[in-house]
Nucleic acid binder design. Structure first.
Lengths: 192, 192
DNA sequence: CGATTCTTTGAAAACAGTCAATCTGTGTGG
DNA sequence: CCACACAGATTGACTGTTTTCAAAGAATCG
């Protein structure tokens, strides 16, 4: 259960056994069934979540009831709402499980303690934040400059491991297009 | 010249005179004329830039020669390409001055030194990174779920100080719509 | 299998983009 | 100071893409 997380950490930074132990000691395990919520709009998010197995999605629901997927989190990814965590305000996002999933949770207090006490952990988090930011910039670039077809094609290249695992209507939602448009793109281009 | 930056820092964190001095001592001043490049696609970016006066834009140019604006940086904002800085790879972005501008530059080495040596500076940068990330998430949300009209309206609300200062065709480029579409939106809604 | 979820298809409508021309304001050089 | 060039903004007509709405067809799960 923890071995996935331990491997994740040791793949990224060099860290002592003792430090690893103190990280693991503040992790709690949570299992989510498909469609189960981890966070609902209006809740205040106070945790850090690491996905060990399965897949989560973070999304908003607009006035018309349409879902807009902000991100997917599969094994070895993080999930949560940094905005609610940092501001203490209710979240505008929903997070639920796309598949039955297993996640590790760390409280914000313990997380801050780890950042303070364990330089390697801090370094790892900084690196992840940097990469996340760069990925967000790329996604903005794609969203404002690509056609629907180019967006789907870029998605397949960037996240091949996601494409065969996530329902197409969720991929469409992630890309900001309708399921019908995605279906037609796939038909026209024969991209599968 | 440095007072803008000093105020920026002291507004955000508590810091000693001595620490402020060491920050200022590694800053160099650069003046940019309108349209002058700070970074060109293909260059490797090795700096941190803080805008004291004026306005910069970060953008890409696609195969068809169309510009897509990633971000604007006015007074009290940062500019640069974190991706190129962190990976050491050539930048895919161009940065140039929308208006005659004055900026402060810090080398990556000195910047890292400041992060290491001055906890308050480190804290400030972490906060900025967090806020930037949250802003990027919001922009993604807008890009994938709003109509052109809603995008413009959200832009006016979020950056009222930018709207009257930047040519409309650049605003359009930032929003991912054509100048013609933006012009028609403005006419229809009487939003100015 | 029965229900639900997911995907596809068709036709019409809405939306945004393209192309070309004109209009406006600004600034520059003669 | 005027004429002109130029960048920016607008407009019109047209095209093309994407959405919407409605329905039907697959696939999957319990």
């Amino acid at each position: 259960m923890f071995d996935v997380f331990i491997k994740y950490i040791t793949d990224r930074v060099s860290i002592s056994e003792k430090e690893l132990d103190s990280i693991i000691s503040v992790c709690s395990i949570k299992r989510l069934r498909r469609k189960q919520y981890l966070l609902q709009e209006g809740d205040i998010w106070k945790l850090i979540a690491f996905v060990v197995k399965g897949c989560l999605r973070t999304y908003t629901v607009d006035e018309q009831g349409l879902e807009h997927i902000n991100s997917f989190s599969i094994e070895n990814w993080w999930a949560g709402d940094r905005e609610s965590l940092l501001t203490g305000k209710p979240s505008i996002y929903n997070i639920d499980a796309v598949e039955d999933s297993e996640i590790l949770l760390i409280t914000h207090e313990n997380y801050n303690m780890l950042l303070r006490e364990i330089p390697a952990f801090n370094q790892m988090v900084t690196d992840i934040h940097n990469k996340s930011f760069i990925a967000a910039q790329k996604r903005i670039h794609i969203a404002i400059s690509y056609t629907a077809e180019q967006k789907y094609s870029a998605f397949l290249e960037t996240y091949p491991q996601l494409a065969n695992r996530i329902p197409l209507h969720m991929v469409a939602s992630y890309l900001g297009i309708t399921p019908e448009t995605l279906s037609r793109i796939r038909k026209l281009t024969n991209i599968k």
